[in-house]
Amino acid sequence: MPFASLRGFLSLQTPLQFLPHLSPPTLLSTRTKQPLCLSVSFAASAMDSQSPCLLVLFGKSSTEKELAKSLKDNNSLKLPDNDKFSILLHSETRIPVEENCFRNNSFLNCLSTTRFGRFLIWSPQLPSTHDAVSHNFGELPIGAVCVADVQFKGRGRSKNVWESPRGCLLFSYTIQMEDGRVVPIVQYVVSLAMTEAIKDVCHKNGIPHLDVRIKWPNDLYLDGLKVGGILCTSTYKSKKFNISAGIGLNIDNEKPTTCLNAVLQKLTSVTYRLQREDILAAFFNKFETLFDLFIDKAIQCFLQLGIPRHLTDFTYL
């Protein structure tokens, strides 16, 4: 079913009762003392896991920019384990950024959402984008995203820890939901939005479609090899589920399996290479539409749109 036909599912009335009962995954929050702000270099290559982290705050509109200033002025943000870090506003970053750093302005210029992705935290190197948004959920607006060029304590399922080098799109963002019955399914909306985003970027740039597929429960596969993964965790507070959704997607690093650009080069002689900023903007543009449909018609929308075309091993239902 084409993405353009999504709105046709608004009239569906499939009941939710056929789904097995699942409790939403939880992430226990911890209180940490306010870290000391330090001045650090932009260059991720000059940093290691012992260096203080740098967080740069961006906003697409004046409202988000004012929030960024308030968070910095009030020292509102924190990292787990008392990790030290410093904060800069985008307007304060006068030092030239490395060529292969995330191009934040390019991302924001391509973004057309009203909620998701509009408040951005970027770091050249961070222990975990997922921990960054989880530990600051109450301070951040819903839809805020944290992006890192390098990640050395990335989180996976079953408490797995991943080191993520350059060439990967690494980000986590905030979602809020009220219906606990469908919270466990939101990760599939995230997965579907990413597959649609990759297809959309390929189409807009006139390059062959990359058939990225979803493998249950949280992996992204291309040509039979894993190129990405999704992690969604949640806490429950004030009758709402606060969800932190994280994605790692291998765009430009062929190790340990393959990457999107390596497969693309096999399909075409065009020199164009997929960029992290374009895919992230396309992801949020797709996710916001899909999420609104999901909340409105929940499971039936997911079933009709996700299973037939994208899932390669859906053993849950």
Results as ranks from 00 to 15, higher is better:
L6S: 03
L10H: 09
L16P: 00
S23W: 03
S23K: 13
P25Y: 03
L27G: 12
S29G: 13
K33W: 06
A43E: 15
A44G: 10
S45A: 15
M47Y: 01
D48K: 02
L71T: 02
S76R: 12
H90L: 08
E92D: 15
R94W: 09
N100L: 10
N104I: 12
N109G: 05
S112G: 05
F119S: 06
L120I: 14
I121E: 07
S128Q: 10
V133Q: 06
N136G: 07
E139G: 04
G143S: 07
D149T: 12
V150I: 14
R155W: 03
K159C: 09
P165C: 04
R166N: 13
G167Y: 04
Q176M: 14
M177D: 02
D179P: 01
G180M: 06
V183I: 13
I185M: 12
A197Y: 01
K199F: 09
D200L: 15
V201H: 10
H209V: 11
D211H: 11
K215N: 11
N218R: 00
N218F: 00
L222H: 04
D223T: 11
G228T: 05
I230V: 15
K240C: 09
K240G: 01
Q265A: 14
L274S: 06
I279S: 02
I279H: 00
A281N: 01
F284Q: 00
D292M: 09
I295V: 12
K297R: 15
F302R: 09
G306C: 15
R309V: 07
H310K: 11
T312E: 15
F314D: 07
L317V: 15
L317D: 06
